[in-house]
Design a protein around this nucleic acid. Structure first.
Length: 876
RNA sequence: GCCAAAGUGGCGGAAUUGGUAGACGCGCUGGACUCAAAAUCCAGUCUGGCUUACCCCAGGUGAGGGUUCGAGUCCCUCCUUUGGUACCA
């Protein structure tokens, strides 16, 4: 008969709840361990088997750390704003708050059913006004800050205002220049607009990814996710809130060095930030197409390009502007106007995605020319959509000889190709006629009266030409990032309102702290507003306000924050979840941060994890948190596939429901199986047989202690322990502990199975082994372990019992097996006393009959003897 | 295309610094218990050969080379799978 897992699990879950067994006391002794799960989005479908995988892993570590004397913080909460609840509301008109609450109850029930040892008193919910008050508060901190490039830090905007009042724009990088006096003479609106160029949160008119079906814009990072689901996304210029994450690009990149994260995730973050070194170079525009060939007739107009290959500048035979480039129309010759405008219009209707799909290069000649500053020759300016406005300067110098894209374009439009890098070892590099050469080599054809790069390799040439450009004041070495500013507003109802009022004089006013939280108004309908505004625009009473101080009329911001906002800082709220005066007290922040282990899905490798790092760095600069990184150690759980080794999906009918598994085999079996399947990070298929396997193991454990009648078995008693059993036991204690520390749960479990198999063989079972065995099992199968612990006569939960200690001396075997090889092939095994000297090993090895057979008639030329391990004879 | 990770029995997966490949589990085969079944327990299970024999021989960790007394592990080339990314100049 199977052990009564249902009764046991309900009993102990109630016990833990009633006794608040896992409530964290901030003042408890012991080193701190902040063990964090990525909190779930409570969807209507309930938990799937992927959730318990990561959650069980952190639960095992948490329970283990408690037994090792750590003060453990292990919280959970709900990432409950988001589009699915709102879409459901659009269809049913049921308020998202209601569906969200229902979904949370389901998730909470399911998570409790798994026996996860969360401190439920710290449960958080991003849609709770008491929570999102602080999301809004952090938004305002960001809004009220600017990035000072001199100290590379975010600082309060007030420090910028003071500096402007003191010395104008003297020490700043700013297009607009003015003195302190001029600043003071500026109107409120002028000052407001100027400061907006510096704030870390700002509004900009940018081409965004608008999804008509969803009625909202999407961040660049989100587009792929929704287009995969079949939604269409178009580009459209709109006024949107942005976060100046690009200001932090360098630090976000630099600090990845300090993170103990999966290599692939770090790589993805680095690629996303996309740092590249190169030079920006100014090209003077020739004064009109008529002057073609007439040197010196330069206009004042300049086009700046960014290139990572300034060394190839002598091979730049044309220039390309992005269709959106601001100088495109100015450069275009009168007779080409119509053609260019037509092309730009076509390009603007295509999304980035469509542009990418098209392999063929398209473009149009503007009729205008610029002067290549290295060769001093005129080169034609083209407009082509293979150059995008969002990166670099939106303009390139095209070097068809040494760039594949430029080469393809030049071939298409019969533009000359000039070789300036010759592959090493080949004197005639004529191959640039057929394909671009992008490798390193020796520079050729690269000299003017002032500077020569000929003969240099790429790196030397880059350095030399950059120096020359800087000397001539036509360019400089620069660093570019692929990272763009973060599109922060969404045209949605179910998100945090942005606490900003747009006043009738065109300025914005941020709410003050005591006006927070700015509550979401109740709506009767949740359909999109029909315009590009969010449904909030329809809540007239909420939207239209009068500013108390100035008496001006105003309109509240109707956009809401993206779902990422709440998750950018939730880990901090766990530290002090009921604090009404601060998002978190500084003392508690110092006590618990940083997060010691963070476990969650790899799908958040760039989005959540990058945004959270960004907010954390801003909070760090402003002095609200004490660590520059939030998550020191990160691990991902692998995806669990269906039993057929394919991705789980309703349409394939291979979805495993945790409720059913728990009903059939119990939560302990479910937990144990998910950990036994294989390494945490790997993708692996579900197996019902496998669950049965670990279920059998749990039953074997049960029967070691308990009779058919449910009483403690009389076979369990104090008795001498055989050295063999002792060895296995101490090995198990050691291995289980070490494996839990490095999250190798599958091997920890197999070792426990070995011990249990050994104990099963015998009719009498030493209590000195069985007691600690319960403690070893406890992190994995806590319900079963608690029940056995109480059957052994203990009155209290084992949650804080000390973890068993192994005895190093008991790990020493008295005898070891030594293998004998001849020419590296196994020929015999000998069991000998530990540390048998090498000479003796050799004698014993030579005495083995099979070894003799293989040595017969051969000459031993070498002997390799490794104590306690092997003897190898090399023969001829 | 580029970047990253990974390829081990019928299956999931183990294997310190290079030192007995296949731990543990599943499945399968045989046996015990049973009227029978389930459950449980015991034994076997990389492939091929030889054999009375769990004795021995040969091969074997995606493929091919290399280093070494010895390679799943280190190096080179290639193939495959998964994840990311894609005109980012």
């Amino acid at each position: 008969m199977a052990y009564p897992f249902f009764d046991i699990e309900t009993k102990w879950q109630k016990y833990w709840d009633d006794h608040e067994t896992f409530k964290t006391d901030d003042s408890s002794p012991g080193p701190k361990a902040f063990i964090l799960d990525m909190y779930p989005y409570p969807s209507g479908a309930g938990l799937h088997v992927g959730h318990p995988e990561g959650y069980t892993a952190t639960d095992i570590l948490s329970r283990y750390r408690r037994m090792k004397g750590y003060n453990v913080l292990h919280p959970i909460g709900w990432d409950a704003f988001g589009l699915p609840a709102e879409r459901y509301a659009m269809q049913t008109n049921i308020h998202p708050r209601i569906t969200t609450e229902q979904n949370i109850s389901t998730f909470r029930r399911q998570i409790k059913m798994l026996g996860l040892s969360y401190d439920w008193s710290r449960e958080i919910n991003t849609t709770d006004p008491k929570y999102y008050k602080w999301t809004q508060w952090i938004f305002l901190q960001i809004y009220h800050s600017w990035f000072d490039p001199r100290s590379k830090k975010g600082r309060p905007i007030q420090t910028l205002i003071e500096e402007l009042e003191r010395q104008g724009t003297k020490g700043l990088i700013s297009e607009e220049k003015f003195s302190a006096e001029e600043w003071k003479r500026k109107s409120k609106k002028e000052k407001h607009d100027f400061l907006a160029n510096f704030r870390l949160a700002y509004i900009a008119e940018i081409p965004v990814n608008w999804c008509e079906a969803l009625g909202t814009v999407l961040a660049n990072e989100e587009v792929a996710e929704w287009t995969e689901k079949g939604y269409t996304v178009e580009r459209r210029p709109m006024r949107q809130w942005m976060m100046r994450i690009t200001a932090y690009a360098e630090r976000l990149l630099e600090d990845t060095k300090e993170l103990d994260w999966p290599a692939s995730t770090l790589e993805q973050q680095r690629n996303w930030i996309g740092r590249s070194e190169g030079a920006s170079i100014k090209f003077k525009v020739s004064s009109g197409a008529e002057s073609h060939g007439a040197r010196g007739a330069h206009s004042k107009l300049e086009v700046e390009v960014f290139t990572t290959r300034p060394d190839t500048i002598f091979g730049a035979t044309y220039m390309v502007l992005a269709p959106e480039h601001p100088l495109a129309s100015e450069i275009t010759a009168a007779e080409k106007k119509k053609e260019v405008e037509e092309y730009v219009k076509q390009a603007s209707m295509k999304s980035d995605l469509e542009r990418g799909i098209e392999k063929e290069k398209t473009g149009v000649f503007t009729g205008g020319f610029v002067i290549n500053p290295a060769t001093n020759k005129e080169i034609p300016v083209w407009i082509a959509d293979y150059v995008v406005m969002g990166y670099g300067t939106g303009a390139i110098m095209a070097v068809p000889g040494h760039d594949e894209r430029d080469f393809a374009f030049a071939k298409e439009f019969q533009i000359p190709v000039v070789e300036v890098v010759s592959p090493k070892g080949s004197s005639t590099g004529g191959n640039v006629a057929h394909e671009a050469f992008t490798g390193d080599g020796a520079l050729v054809n690269s000299a003017n009266s002032d500077v020569s790069l000929n003969g240099l390799n790429a790196e030397e040439a880059k350095r030399k030409i950059t120096q020359w450009l800087e000397k001539e004041k036509i360019g400089s070495g620069t660093v570019q990032y692929k990272l763009r500013d973060w599109l922060f507003s969404r045209q949605r109802y179910w998100g945090e309102p942005i606490p900003i009022i747009h006043l009738e004089d065109g300025t914005m006013k941020a709410l003050s702290e005591n006006e927070l939280p700015l509550l979401l108004p109740d709506l009767k309908k949740f359909q999109p507003s029909g315009t590009t505004e969010s449904p909030l625009a329809l809540a007239a009473e909420w939207v239209n306000v009068v500013d108390q101080t100035s008496g001006m009329k105003g309109r509240r911001e109707t956009n809401t924050m993206p779902q990422w906002a709440g998750s950018c800082w939730y880990y901090l709220r766990y530290l002090d979840p009921r604090n009404g005066n601060a998002f978190c007290s500084p003392e508690l922040e110092k006590k618990w941060m940083p997060v010691d282990l963070y476990v969650g899905g790899a799908e958040h490798a760039v989005l959540h994890l990058l945004y959270a790092r960004f907010w954390h760095k801003v909070l760090f600069d402003l002095g609200y948190v004490s660590t520059k990184e939030p998550f020191i150690k990160l691990r991902h759980q692998g995806i669990i596939l269906g039993e057929d080794s394919r991705k789980m999906s309703k349409s394939r009918g291979n979805v495993v429901n945790p409720d059913e598994v728990v009903r059939e085999y119990g939560a302990d079996a479910m937990r144990l199986f998910e950990m036994f399947m294989g390494p945490l990070e790997e993708m692996k298929p579900w197996s019902t047989r496998g669950v049965e396997g670990v279920f059998r193991f749990l039953n074997r454990v049960w029967r070691l202690y308990v009779t058919e009648e449910g009483a403690l078995d009389s076979a369990v008693k104090e008795m001498p322990v055989s050295p063999e059993l002792e060895l296995i036991f101490h090995t198990t204690v050691k291995k289980a502990g070490e494996d839990i520390e490095c999250l190798h749960f599958n091997t920890a479990i197999s070792q426990m199975m070995i011990l249990v198999n050994e104990l099963t063989k015998s009719d009498v079972r030493p209590r000195q082994i069985l007691e600690p065995l319960v403690l070893l099992v406890a992190p994995f199968a806590p319900h079963l372990a608690e029940e056995l612990w109480s059957k052994l006569g203990h009155k209290e939960s084992l949650a804080h019992e000390p973890w068993p200690v192994y005895d190093e001396s008991k790990l020493q075997k008295k005898t070891v097996e030594v293998v004998v090889q001849v020419n590296g092939k196994l020929r015999a095994k000998m069991t000998v006393a530990l540390d048998t000297p090498e000479e003796t090993l050799k004698k014993l090895a030579l005495a083995e009959s099979n070894v003799q057979a293989h040595l017969d008639g051969k000459q031993v030329v070498k002997e390799i003897i490794v104590k306690n391990r092997l003897v190898n004879f090399v023969v001829k």
